[in-house]
């Protein structure tokens, strides 16, 4: 009975979601929104060419103007924005009981985690410069990964 009260009511093909899971999904959605804002800003900078010129921190230029900041000409920040938006979408759907999205959420967050580790390595050992926007994004991804781990623990 107690357990029943702690879940939301299922609707259609959705399942009942424990309140604790709803809280975690909501926090995941909020964090991904912060990451989305950061990545969108960086993507716009890359598309306008602002990262190719100078007017701010030299270290930021070193990172964002480097070849590592693009994949086949596409700004990595744009890929990041899509990833954050996907995480937000999956978290919202998960919170409303769409159980199938959970595997997509896990896959996306762990993929972002792996890419973040590579980017941190690139900044520290290849470029020898750190971009504060990238560090903020890395912090968001670590938080997301932590929440995903927390949501799986009993």
């Amino acid at each position: 009975m107690k357990n029943k009260r702690a879940t939301s009511k299922p609707a259609g093909d959705t399942i009942a979601v424990p309140r604790s899971q709803i809280v975690i999904y909501s926090i995941v959605a909020l964090i991904s929104l912060a990451g989305l804002a950061d990545a969108t800003y960086l993507a716009v900078q890359a598309l306008t060419g602002e990262t190719m010129v100078c007017g701010g921190s030299p270290d930021c230029f070193k990172v964002l103007g480097s070849t590592y900041a693009r994949i086949g000409g596409v700004p990595l920040a744009l890929v990041g924005a899509v990833a954050y938006f996907s995480v937000f979408s999956f978290a919202i759907l998960g919170a409303f009981g769409y159980a199938r999205v959970r595997r997509f959420l896990l896959f996306t967050v762990w993929s972002m985690f792996a890419v973040t580790l590579w980017l941190l390595y690139t900044q520290a050992f290849i470029l020898h410069a750190f971009c504060r926007y990238c560090l903020f994004s890395a912090a968001m991804v670590f938080l997301l990964a932590g929440l995903i781990v927390a949501s799986r623990s009993p």
Binding site: A11, L36, T48, F85, L93, F96
Partner: peptide, 30 residues
């Protein structure tokens, strides 16, 4: 309503992000 609400939230956030990106792009264009 509850079934479509998450899709509405996702769509709103998507449009707001896209709109903000376009506004920012126009402002930052040389």
């Amino acid at each position: 309503m509850k079934r479509v609400l998450p899709f509405i939230i996702v769509a709103v956030v998507g449009f707001v992000t896209l709109g903000a990106g376009i506004v920012l792009y126009r402002a930052k264009r040389p």
